[in-house]
Design a protein around this nucleic acid. Structure first.
Lengths: 330, 330
DNA sequence: AATGAATCAGTCAGCGCTGTCAAGACTGCG
DNA sequence: CGCAGTCTTGACAGCGCTGACTGATTCATT
């Protein structure tokens, strides 16, 4: 930094001001310093910055029970935002299904050791009030991804799961399907439940008396097979099934194959997530795309643009990805 | 640290010595300091340590073109090793298929910005001589995962891909299969090729004249479908197919279904990796398990146990995971 | 025109550790 | 017993940056 200051003919502090985008810096000075920084390819030392200042330039990303596809996308979005803002990314797993004291012990270790400037919480941590309360008590900033309660409590990023469920309902209805099935998610997964209720509410608007068949799923491939077999055994058999995530949709597809039903000729199938599975099954799965990578990016931006104005709640767009698993009823 | 020193009745430097496991510290002093550290739950400040010392306590994990399943497992292994040794983990992606100068620019930015103590290289970076040369020129330590050339050049971790291919060959042969097919990997993926050649060599030992049908794959689901259709159209049709990774095996499974062939009744199928897809298809895929998470852990340990004796090359075990896609020929 | 407020730039201590150097306490050997 | 060599501990500077403060201008207001 000394070299930069000398080359620009200014004091160390002025270089620091420019690097940190502090106010009250004249344009000419800023230009001189920036030129010197570029000329010397100066990169500020993160360790020294965090030692001297109050920030650590680290953001923590907290997962529980990570599903590879989801995790990796969130991570890459958060990473992208961190690089832009010259932050480092630190990833931690915590098991939130333990007794209260143990969860707190894990959090305590992470908060103490990592000294992050803030954390990003992913489901199911994002709705864990115990975790939220702990972080607040410690005065640690955090942003949440896909929360389903107390949205005002912190910056958060989400999609409108209910609207997405309704979109699937409208699409299936428009194709002519009147015998419908839904594969639900795990009981505690609020987002999954909102997809389901959004779907059901939309159908009810079309025909208040129509009964939609439901089967329990756990968002896993195996549970999808079971739920699919369950649904296919109903009388009348559904002509279209909405599985509230892609993994269980892949399972339903297996159940169809075992029942001798061809997708989409004999039965239509819609997933949710547009995860990597959607293109690892045949036919390719029609599904709802949710911008997971973008959610990671938005959450990190929310966390890092501290002073900035703007929404503390960001709603991102979703859309239907039409592939090959939907057709009119036979 | 001052508090610890006061409580233990020693100097700051002595606490530092204990924390860093430096030699020439008496047992009594070490015990006193450790007790004080435990009593105060002291955690050394990474920023200060790296500012004062020569280490940064960060290890960098370099990916190119990440496949989620592989990436996440490597990452979790590396992460585990880092936590144990009080290191931080930093993850970076680099695109290695660009012109030489651009690859160097990316590397330069990463090395300069991150100031990592060392890097871990994953395929295909692990065999990129340009990357290796750059790191060496900069005097940066690195460990490689699953390299296929110049093993002695750096610490590395791998499995014996050829032996794994041979294991599949023996297994298929023992089941009675004599008409065999192989789906290859991308041309530049050396490990994939070693699986193939190991397989072919083992078959040649059983019957030097037997011709194994081969079809090009690219380790992707789609390429697996095409390769499967290709193989199934051969005359005579193979009774067993070895796909050199799980994704392409899942594709072959689709090709079988479209050809009206049931796995494993009509045709047997073996994958490689034991990735997450292996349990997202029906029937579940018999495949070779390779300890990917362990490889990450071992690579990080190799990198961090600097002075330690012991092998600079670690060969990890693999094994066949018998699930439901193999049976005797019809 | 006089006063206070805001803007701009600089000085300097010190963040929490580790590297260097030095001093004291031992050991073994002639 | 004395001396060189080794082991064990401590004092202190300084890593590269930022926060708090100070001083010099310029601007807005009465």
């Amino acid at each position: 930094m000394e070299d930069v200051a000398r080359l620009a003919g200014v004091s160390l502090k002025s270089v620091s001001r420019v690097v940190n985008r502090e106010p009250h810096v004249s344009d000419t000075l800023r230009a001189k310093v920036e030129a010197a920084i570029a000329a010397l390819a100066f990169v500020p030392d993160a360790a020294a910055r965090s030692l001297a200042g109050s920030r650590t330039f680290i953001v923590g990303l907290l997962f529980d029970n990570p599903s590879p596809n989801y995790t990796i996308k969130i991570q890459s979005g958060v990473y992208r935002a961190c690089v832009e803002q010259q932050y480092h990314l630190r990833i931690d797993n915590i098991a939130s299904d333990l007794p209260r004291a143990e969860v707190e012990a894990q959090l305590d270790a992470i908060v103490r050791n990592s000294r992050c400037d803030g954390f990003i919480l992913t489901p199911p941590l994002t709705d864990n009030v115990q975790v939220l309360a702990f972080l607040e008590r410690r005065g640690v900033r955090y942003a949440r991804i896909a929360p389903n309660s107390e949205l005002g409590r912190s910056p958060c990023v989400a999609i409108d799961d209910a609207a997405a469920g309704a979109l699937v309902a409208r699409h299936l209805w428009a194709l002519g399907h009147r015998r419908l099935g839904v594969v639900t998610g795990p009981p505690l997964h609020r987002a999954g439940d909102r997809r389901r209720t959004g779907f059901l509410a939309a159908i009810r608007q079309f025909d208040p008396d129509l009964v939609v068949a439901e089967a329990d799923g756990l968002f896993s491939f195996e549970s999808g097979i079971a739920a699919g077999m369950d649904l296919l055994a109903r009388d009348p058999r559904p002509t279209a099934i909405f599985a509230t995530n892609d993994d269980s949709a892949a399972g339903v597809m297996v159940a169809c194959a075992r029942a001798g039903l061809r997708v989409p000729h004999d039965i239509s199938l819609c997933g949710f997530d547009d995860s990597w599975v959607a293109k690892s099954v045949w036919p390719y799965l029609t599904t709802i795309y949710q911008p997971i990578e973008e959610m990671g990016y938005a959450a990190a931006s929310l966390l890092l643009d501290r002073g900035e104005t703007g929404d503390r709640q960001v709603m991102l767009d979703f859309h239907l990805v039409e592939r090959d698993s939907l057709a009119p009823p036979p």
